[in-house]
């Protein structure tokens, strides 16, 4: 991020982490996100729900500029992280992604040892001055991702040899090892069984103490269980955004109600 101090003046509320204004996303000719305005709070789990293809994952990927890796993708509008525009020319997307970590739909551990998987981020960002410090970060991250007890005796084993649920928690450990401020999760439980899902959900609730978490999910029960705020997307529009209990019990928009009750989607 750029380190000018004038940016701080634009900050309105300290507890707003992300603020998106009139965000439009185009995939070539396809208008994937239409005029989204939303403010995401710090130390909160925000869930994005909506039918497939509604743009929730696309919007999530705008928040750490992962869409930059797709050539035909164009993003318009402003997305502010702590009041600074992340699409400003002076922002290095690489450093942004160190601040805004991401966990993907399918567990994608690197073909390296469990230790090296977690140490990957700290190493490339130079977060540890010594081996002991790196060991400490790795242990803390693995504990944070509630997988330490399962892997502490085999840190040298390949990360790809773990079960699906363990792999996903390893990926979460890997993401939190770089000490991000925000953690983006793109359907993190869709490839997991119910037990592994429960573990990951419990973990998400724990992570709220330290991070702001944004989670895309297809499971409305999951959104209801883990999130404090929910945003409902439909056909590229942000239809409704509010407190999770409010959205699930008393939605304002009838499209939201239709989706939640299972009539569309």
């Amino acid at each position: 991020m750029f380190d000018t101090d004038n940016a701080k003046n634009t900050m309105t509320q300290t507890d707003i982490k992300f603020s998106a204004k009139n965000v439009q996303v185009f995939y070539g000719e396809n208008h994937a996100i239409k005029d989204v305005n939303v403010e995401l709070e710090d130390k909160t789990v925000t869930a994005f729900i909506g039918p497939s293809g509604c743009g929730k994952s696309t919007f999530l990927r705008c928040l750490n500029r992962m869409n930059d890796t797709i050539d035909i993708c164009k993003v318009k509008g402003d997305i502010l992280l702590d009041g600074e525009d992340i699409y400003d020319k002076r922002v290095d997307p690489v450093q942004l992604r160190a601040k805004v970590g991401m966990v993907f739909q399918k567990p994608n551990p690197f073909p390296k040892s469990i230790y090296d998987n977690v140490a990957y981020g700290p190493r490339i960002h130079g977060l540890a001055r010594s081996k002991a410090e790196l060991d400490e970060i790795v242990e803390k991250s693995l504990r944070g991702a509630a997988i330490w007890n399962e892997v502490k005796d085999r840190l040298d084993a390949p990360g790809t040899g773990l079960s699906g649920g363990q792999q996903q928690r390893l990926c979460i450990a890997r993401a939190i090892a770089t000490k991000p401020e925000v953690l983006l999760m793109d359907e993190p439980c869709s490839a997991l069984d119910p037990i592994a899902t429960a573990q990951v959900e419990e973990l998400i609730d724990d992570l709220r103490k330290d991070f702001s978490v944004v989670i895309v999910t297809h499971s409305m029960q999951q959104a209801a269980r883990v999130s404090q705020k929910t945003a409902f997307f439909h056909l590229g529009n942000l239809v409704e955004f509010g407190e999770t209990p409010q959205i699930f019990t008393n939605p304002e928009d009838e499209r939201t109600e239709s989706y939640i009750t299972g009539r569309i989607g």
Binding site: N64, M66, T69, V94, Q95, L96, R97, A98, K99, G101, M102, V103, F104, K106, N108, P109, F110, P111, Y120, G121, I124, H125, C171, R174, A175, T178
Partner: peptide, 14 residues
């Protein structure tokens, strides 16, 4: 797989 690259970019790797 592209997912490995995404994982790495997502951690702030160049």
């Amino acid at each position: 797989p592209q997912s490995l690259r995404d994982g790495s970019y997502g951690l702030g790797a160049t």
